[in-house]
Amino acid sequence: MQFRYLGDSGFKVSEIIYGNWLTHASQIADDQAMMTVAAALEAGITTYDTADVYANQAAETVLGKALKNQRREGLEILTKVYWPVAEKGPNDTGLSRKHIFESINGSLKRLQTDYVDLYQAHRYDYETPLEETMQAFGDLVRMGKVLYVGVSEWTAEQISEGQKLAKGLGFKIVSNQPQYSMLYRVIEEKVIPTSEQNGVTQIVWSPMAQGVLSGKYLPGAPLPEGSRAADPELASIIEKYMSDEVLTKVQLLKPLADELSITMAQLSIAWVLNNSNISAAIVGASKPEQIASNVAASGVKIPKEMLIKIDEILGSSVVRDASLTKSPEGRMS
């Protein structure tokens, strides 16, 4: 496992991060979750990403149990705040001082830790003054409950404004957590250049485009049993990639993966990590063996000519619209 700095801080994370968005307390039973976390630890993953909204707080609880007996100083635990949780009252969402303080206390309890290494604003809150949000994060840093601060799916302008305020309050935003993959590159035009200017790097989610880039979905073929695309509750997340045109192009990437003696899934993760502004790629797992496979992407270098070939193959199927980086206009309640 290789490690990278977050932003221009001295804080390192494993470049493959274990995330439990759709798995813990949802897709898989707790005992299976414990086995996947054990496999991640065995594979050298030290960084674990979750959020209070995942499985309505239950995912944090499962991760806390799974990491309970590990040396805390040897781990990097990441969580997030924004979305409505618990009873979903008027203050149970957003980035107000009240919600941030109450959320971190709940997250720490569920994760069974005194602090989180990185606390992330899960979206931008248009209804709370940014000054209030940044002051709350800064206070948590000074209290020692949060070591570093990040954001998720913020626009370039929001990152710049947030960083200016943060620095004035004596701390920094070190990371942004956006969606990014070979097929979804909306952060390349504005978010990445602005992040570079502001000392911010990316922790990206869905580097395999919800599994499409693993090559398991074949054009014109039945959906694999148990896959996300076959799950009525999850199908909407992946449907934008499921046309025969996109799936056909994805299959053309297999010879490139074969050339590097890696799987298509490993190629997709390695491609993301090839970008110098990417600190880490988040991967999930429902089975321990998936972790070992994903970790093998760490350290893989993709030749420049192959990167060009990938762009040629995927062509117009790549989503690049920078306007797609946005937060909900109003709070969810």
Rank of each mutant, 00 (worst) to 15 (best):
M1K: 01
F3Q: 12
L6A: 01
S9M: 06
V13N: 03
H24P: 02
Q27E: 09
D30M: 11
D31G: 01
V37I: 06
A40G: 03
A40D: 00
Y48L: 03
A51M: 02
V53Y: 06
A55D: 01
Q57G: 00
Q57K: 12
Q57F: 13
A58L: 03
L63Q: 00
L63D: 01
R72E: 04
L75P: 03
E76G: 11
Y82M: 04
P90A: 05
N91Y: 13
K98E: 14
I100R: 10
S103P: 04
S103F: 09
G106N: 14
Q112T: 00
R123N: 09
Y124G: 05
Y124T: 01
D125K: 13
T133M: 09
M134V: 14
G138F: 08
V149W: 06
S152Q: 00
T155W: 10
T155V: 03
T155L: 07
E157T: 05
E157V: 03
G162Y: 08
A166N: 05
G170V: 04
I173V: 13
N176G: 08
Q177F: 08
Q179S: 13
Y180P: 07
L183M: 12
R185F: 12
I187V: 15
E189R: 14
N198M: 15
T201C: 11
T201R: 10
T201S: 15
V204R: 09
W205Y: 15
V212P: 10
L223Y: 15
P224M: 11
S227P: 11
A230Y: 11
L234N: 10
E239W: 10
Y241L: 09
M242F: 14
K249F: 14
V250S: 13
L253I: 07
L253D: 10
A257V: 07
D258L: 13
T263E: 06
Q266V: 06
A270C: 07
W271S: 06
L273C: 05
S276W: 03
S276C: 02
S279G: 06
S279Q: 03
A280P: 06
I282T: 02
G284S: 10
Q290C: 01
I291S: 04
A292S: 13
V295P: 05
K301G: 05
K301F: 11
P303A: 12
E305N: 15
D311M: 12
S317Y: 06
V318Q: 11
R320L: 15
A322C: 05
A322F: 11
M332Q: 12
S333R: 14
S333D: 09
